[in-house]
Each structure stands twice: as structure tokens, then as C-alpha cells.
Design a protein around this nucleic acid. Sequence first.
DNA 1: TCTGGGGTCCTAGGACCC
DNA 2: TCTGGGGTCCTAGGACCC
Length: 402
Amino acid sequence: MDAFFASVELLRYPQLKGLPIVIGGGRRDVDEMLSERFAGRALSQIPPEAFPLLKDYVGRGVITTATYPARQFGVGSAMGMMKAAKLCPQAIVLPVDFDEVRRHSRTFKAVIREIAPVVEDRGIDEVYIDFTEVPGGQREGGRVLARLIQKSIQDATGLTCSIGVAPNKLIAKMASEFNKPNGISIVYPEDVQTKIWPLPVRKINGIGPKSEAKLHRLHLHTIGDIAAQSQDWLVDNFGQAYGAWMHDAAWGRDDRPVVTESEPVSMSRETTFDRDLHAVRDRAELGAIFTDLCTRVAEDLRRKGYVGRTIGIKLRYDDFRTATRDQTLDDYTADPAVIRRAAGLCLKRVDLGRRLRLLGVRVGKLARADAIPQTAAPAAAEAPRVAEFTPDLFQPGAQETG
DNA sequence: TCTGGGGTCCTAGGACCC
DNA sequence: TCTGGGGTCCTAGGACCC
């Protein structure tokens, strides 16, 4: 989907079309603020000047999505808001409306599945589609089917998407970016040398900032540069698995199937604080946040029907270093009190002397709740008893080691 | 005024077992 | 002057993706 989160906002505020907008960070309710100020007026009638601007933003958020006009200023996904504000102070900032985004996500995926049932979920705004068995899926190299999908999504949601059609997922993903927004691009196997090799290495899905930097140190800048190396040389420099994969990727080889079903591996909740907190000085505040994270991850598990056996914590220090600790229990659980207790023990194994900027709680080794025989069956209707938790951690001595 | 939140997968060492 | 060879599970960290 093209600039998905921002495009969803433009459905509600069409008067902002063509303006630089960034989505992210926000904690305040813009709709509420605006409808108070403009009581009785439709949201689409509120003048653009009334919207909050990036230059007035305060906080630690990053940009989730920027509209194409905002991208002209060098603003993009994952950039800190404060940095973006320097590049484009006049951009409008809107918080993410997750409910609305999820609703449109479900809609566009359902539209696709009606047309081509073999679909792999790749997050909220992206899918892989297998055209192989779809009647007419090969016409004009897939362009006819791609156009049908595009139009059907547009009719159902008012949103545009970009589609890449290729012999495999790796190339299709790259192709999908050739004609953004609202584009279709077909890449045939014989196009790899002309269309793929000139691209920077970072365009390969699986080569991130670290590998890019290492490739640059080795004087490799384009995908063609990688393809020109022997597999042995790549294995020597990047390891057996990654080096061999990189060689295949550079030659456009990828035999991964489109996977239509998958089970979650873990569920987690984490939060970055408005200001860095200290385990001792801010212990009550941290304790409350910690309990809340445990409660929310437990709610997520129950709502989705899962239990887990590995309980873990994550924290990020003021210097941005990250530490994780986890512990595997004998029994599966989705009980907030059990999670809180195990996570509390994990917390005692980590250095709490430094200021923290983030705290997270994770439950892994998941299984479907209905597939696990419940030994000490907790009543199905039992509500999380939050009151029973005491913020007993984050106190002096909690950071003892050894 | 740096740098979100939710995930997956991989690696590597140690424990433990046969 | 020797000290196996696999396999699985657990844990911590890191790369990467949307």
C-alpha cells in the first residue's frame, strides 16, 4: 500500500491532499482537539491551517509514514520527529489511528483473497500473492491481474497500492518499488541484469544498514557488484548461510513459497518513556509501567487464544544499549500474575544502575491455549487481578548480580 | 532534540543426554 | 600428552523487516 498510514488519514481529511504530512509519535487526540475547536463542522471542512505542525512537536517519536510531498524534503520512515522537524518544519503531524489502519488493512487483504486466494501476510500494509494458479494470472506477464487487484482495492477502500510481478518473492518485492505510487511493474527472469543489477545493495530485502556498510567497505555498491563475486568469496566474508544467500539473491534466485498460514512465535509489549527513568528514583512509576506491560501482554495472549512458556524482559538504557533476559517456565501461561512474577525475576538479573528509556515484556514459545492440557486450570472467566501486583521491583538492591 | 513498537530468524556457547 | 560425537534445549544478542 502506498504511504498507507498517511493515505488512511487523507481519507478522513481530504483537504490535506498534496501537503507534506507525517504520521507517528502522537499521543494526543487530534480529532478531539479539532472537533472541539471547530464544533459542529465536518472533519473534512476543518482548514489545513488548523492542524498541528512538525515544528511544534515535542517528544521521542519517529515517523511511521510520510506523504510523498513530505518525502521531497528528505523526511522518511523511521526518522526521529525532531530531526524531521528541521528538514520540514511546516509538515502536518498526525498520530497513527491504529483501529482505522487495521480496518483498511483487513479490507484490502480480503479484496485480494477474493481474487487470488494464495496470499502471504507481510505485516499491516504488504502481502505476497501467488498468481500461478489464478485464471488469467499470466496474461501480459501478470499485468492484467495486477490491474484488477489495484482497481478492486481502490474501489473498496479509496486507497492506492503498487504491485510488482516477478518469478519470485525477492524480485517481486523490488519490482513493487519501481513505480510507486499506484504503479505496476513486471520483471521477467531475463531482466535481472538490466533492472536489478544496477540497484544499490540495500534494495535487496534482507540487506540492512549493517550489511550495506560492510559491503561498501568491500567496495561493493550495486547488486551487480555482489553478483560479480564468487559464492566462495561471499561465504568467506559473510558466513556460510548469509554469504550463499546473498549470492543467490544477487542473481535473482529465490525459491521460497508463498506461505498462507503461520502461527505466532512471540507476543510482546514495550514502551519508551517520555523521559529516562531510574530504577531507584522512579521506582513507583516504573513498577506501575512494568505491571501494565505484563497485564497488556497477558490480555493480548488471551484475546488471541495463546499461552506461552518463555517470559522475557527487554530494556534500553539511556545510551541506547539494549539488554534482554528471559526464563522458560515448566508450564504454559497467559496469567498476568505469573508473567509479572517471572518477568520480575528476569529484571533482577540485569544492571539497573543506569537510566532506562525503554521497558518491554515478552512471552515466547507460544502454543494455542486450546491445544495445551490445563493442569491447574484457571477459571476461564477469571479477570486479571492487577491489584494483587505490588511494584516490588526497581528498588535498591534489585540490581545485585551473581 | 537523536533514534517507536511489534515482530521473525540466526548465531553461538553451555548444559545435558545418549 | 589426552581429552568422541551427535542431538536438543536454553539463553543473550543482533540483524532485519513492516
